[in-house]
Design a protein around this nucleic acid. Structure first.
Lengths: 339, 339
DNA sequence: TTGTACGCGTTATCAT
DNA sequence: ATGATAACGCGTACAA
């Protein structure tokens, strides 16, 4: 409301002095300091951060771009709360902006944050290609980090997860349990993550000399409804399967819902594994096994690295995080893996 | 990177002309316009939003403050995605900042957004008292709207929901189903919402001349774990109950988990209702009935009203939204309400 | 149609 | 220890 100049007038000093008091830099006598504090109080003065950031070329803000198509999943809250917490530890503010639902809009969101002079930007891309991101990174002076994509040129600016290996291991686990007809529900195939998970599944089958059957591979769209639809199409086509690997937990939940609806006992007849497991998942899907995606670790690492670029200090070189297969003890439905 | 002045030099014109080209305001000849566009392209120019906002005293940004203790619930994603979507429709950017986990920090978050000169701020408060919020609202020139709290002084700046009435109705429904011993699990009692829901429960019992039994009222903390713990203590103390009203769905999920663990058949032996139901809930808790909290409607209304204050146009006076009891058809577990 | 010059609210570099 | 004053990058009356 009131400006620094007005405070200065009230206190009978100059703008410069008020600024010194506020920043704590430079000498200023005890008495005038008190006068200034009082004037600030009286005026109800608040600094205009736009002006400050413009002058200092710093903002203490770090931007995060996420597509709103992710907002509805379990994944999102984990991502956001982790990022907010971690940045809070380093005295930074997180600014989340909506990446909306296209590559263009994701790019606009990034540029908005950069134009706002955020100190750094984190991208959790969904539609943007790595080439475009590589370009953007080189175009701007602010550090930009990409989560969950393997960049081509700026490899130190990204963190990713071995989705293929994770999927391979999950499939291998099912095979070792004796399964041969394993249905696979893909994510949206315009997503690299979905592709990697599919290829891990295929590779595991190949390595165990089990034929990859096209009819066992159904396209999903990450949502519970698409998981349910996928399993329904399998049933309608009378495809035989004894296990399901769904490309994320939401779809696995849809699968469980559909199977129970038609009277198929989950643990006895079919084994199911999902992906992306987050902390609250055990409550939502008590006996669904899942491959934990290391979001938290990745976000944490990304932020550590950004802070180190801004402040100096921390350094690490871990670019690739691994997933962990969580086989849950069954609770409500009996043992999942007991054949 | 490069400034408007540099673009102007490249194009052989003045800053003002570049500015005119960018804003589309004022006359500028076709030929120079083209020269300027080319210069902008060549320079890779991007406007500095800090400077622009400082000069215009507008930002096209609307801030939202939410405690990160909410980030992990289902509620949050619904809230955020709704807000982002709605603001997108009006050409505004949503900026989410972390309200962290105390009244002071919530207040700091608000002031941060205001200091950033956001055009308006939306608060979904968790710890802040209405008195403090009333003060803040009067202190700043930017419009501030509060969701889910009934302000004392600035009643037109808030939107809320009749939690008490909703809880009353849910309880009444259980009573009409023949239940007499209805356990109630509260939310964190430092939350007004939790208090209102508790009082609705009590009032419904009173109105039906059913004694309020203290041993049936257990304190929870909104989390699934606390719901499970609550039900466990009831069982340990051999308290008789035939229905459970949990103050949110997360706790209800914990209740279901615990009951199934100890071998109590949910639908046959006990009826359960939760609160806050969000769109994806049917997949998470297929047969849990729930009282739908009208978050979407409230957020939508708040944003409509803000936009109208900023742009003019829309007007509405609906300050109080009502909840709706959703009794689900059971799917996996048999009929919930069949006694 | 275009250019000049000032203001936005700070910080920071000089003198004093 | 304090006060002018020049940046910061942009918008905008006003003049030309």
């Amino acid at each position: 409301m009131s400006t620094m100049q007005e405070v200065a007038n009230k206190a009978g000093v100059s703008k410069a002095t008020v600024s010194r008091v506020l920043s704590g830099k430079g000498y200023v006598s005890k008495t005038t300091k008190d006068r200034v504090y009082k004037a600030i109080e009286d005026a109800g003065y608040r600094p205009n951060l736009l002006a400050r950031n413009l002058a200092t070329n710093k903002s203490q803000c770090i931007g995060l771009v996420v597509t709103n198509t992710l907002y509805n999943g379990n994944y999102f809250s984990e991502l956001i709360s982790q990022a907010a917490q971690k940045l809070e530890d380093h005295g930074r503010q997180l600014i989340l902006v909506d990446g909306k639902h296209s590559a263009e809009e994701e790019q606009e969101a990034i540029q908005f944050l950069l134009d706002l002079q955020c100190d750094a930007v984190i991208i959790y891309p969904r539609f943007l290609t790595i080439d475009v991101m590589d370009d953007i990174i080189e175009q701007y002076k602010q550090p930009i980090m990409v989560v969950n994509r393997r960049l081509r040129k700026n490899q130190s600016q990204c963190i990713c997860c071995d989705h293929k290996g994770a999927s391979f291991n999950a499939t291998k686990h099912l095979i070792e349990q004796g399964h041969r007809d394993i249905a696979f529900i893909t994510g949206s195939l315009d997503s690299p993550t979905a592709i990697e998970r599919l290829s891990g599944y295929k590779e595991a089958l190949n390595q165990h000399h089990i034929e990859v059957q096209d009819k066992l591979i159904i396209k999903g769209k990450w949502t519970p409804a698409s998981g349910a639809a996928a399993i329904e199409s399998l049933l309608n086509n009378k495809v035989t399967f004894s296990a399901v690997l769904a490309s994320n937990d939401d779809m696995a939940i849809g699968v469980i819902k559909k199977l129970t609806e038609v009277g198929i006992a989950i643990p006895t007849d079919v084994s199911i594994i999902g992906f992306d497991n987050i902390p609250t998942a055990p409550y939502l899907t008590p006996s669904l096994s899942s491959v934990k995606d290391p979001v938290s670790n990745m976000v944490s690492e990304v932020i550590n690295r950004l802070i180190s670029m801004l402040d100096g200090g921390y350094l690490s070189k871990n670019n690739l995080f691994t997933s962990e297969l969580l086989v849950r003890d069954s609770v409500a439905y009996g043992p999942f893996w007991g054949k």
